[in-house]
Amino acid sequence: MAACARPAWAEGCFDAQGKPGKPVYLTLDTGHMAVAPLMADILAKHQVKATFFAANERTQTGDGSLGKDWAPWWKARAAEGHDFASHTFDHTYWRADVGSDQFRVRPSAGPSQGRESVWTAAQYCGELAKAATRLEEITGKKPLPLFRAPGGKTSPRLLAAAKTCGYDHVGWSPAGFLGDELPSEAYSNDALLKKALRDIQPGDILLAHLGIWSRKDPWAPAVLEPLITGLKERGFCFATLREHPRYKAWIERQTDPAAVKPAK
């Protein structure tokens, strides 16, 4: 009897028994970085590969999340096999489209922190490339041709502009919002963990951060390890966005134009 075709989401990773698993895609955005070393230890302990979206954000220690003080941390993650992508260099929020070809933006880090400006598409593309270039400088690994807009805030015009300069946008799945940005007074770590384990589905893109300033009871690393072990017990496995069916062909085209040939 012929084997059944594997569903699209069953690409890229295997369960604890070495069988094709139900993949999820853990993505981690930068933050204050205080919990980053502990999170990295947990990922290494459980052999979980993540995709990091990096901006040069203000940190509790050091000179910015992409500064020289954190460079060894990023290089170690590259050696472990994680993937990286742009989160804009100064964590720059899209605020609105302006006219036919410009955007109102506001960085939350860097020299223009908190000030609104109007940028061209070329300026926005430069902001995406600046973070990617810095990641490659400090890790020695070429980032994926992907980006995540801070807050996930975009417009169709912004997404189209980013694609023209080689970047596809990555959001997150509804159940993949892990809640680490929510106030701990209303959303306890225990409640967020239970919700995630109940609702996450195969193929979901998960979102958390390397430290959130506003949450009093930090989500990470407290929830990260039981989330990983709980999902693995349910037959899930972890892959980077390099293996995601939504992005795999795009990544191959951007990194090697000959890798994906157009259909005849």
Rank of each mutant, 00 (worst) to 15 (best):
A175F: 04
T154A: 00
A44G: 09
A162Y: 01
A50L: 03
E116V: 12
V35F: 02
T139R: 02
K49D: 02
D217I: 11
L159K: 04
G81C: 10
V98E: 15
K75L: 02
P145Y: 09
K142T: 14
C125W: 07
F14K: 15
K194E: 04
E137Y: 01
T139A: 04
S155T: 08
K163S: 12
E127R: 05
E127N: 13
A85L: 12
L210C: 13
A222C: 12
V170M: 02
H91R: 10
K163N: 14
T255S: 15
W213A: 13
Y247C: 06
A222W: 01
L158Y: 00
A249R: 15
A79I: 05
T61K: 11
W73G: 07
M1E: 09
R242H: 12
L241Q: 03
W9F: 11
D180M: 08
K49I: 00
V105P: 02
T133C: 02
G114V: 13
S112V: 06
P221S: 14
R253M: 12
E185D: 14
V48M: 00
I212V: 15
T88L: 15
W213K: 07
A3K: 07
A85R: 05
G18I: 03
E181I: 05
A44R: 15
V223M: 13
W70V: 11
D168C: 06
N56E: 05
S188N: 09
A34F: 02
K141N: 01
R115T: 11
K216V: 15
F84A: 01
H91F: 04
A121L: 08
Q113L: 09
A55V: 04
G203R: 03
S100N: 12
A162D: 05
E181S: 15
R157Q: 13
A122M: 08
A131K: 03
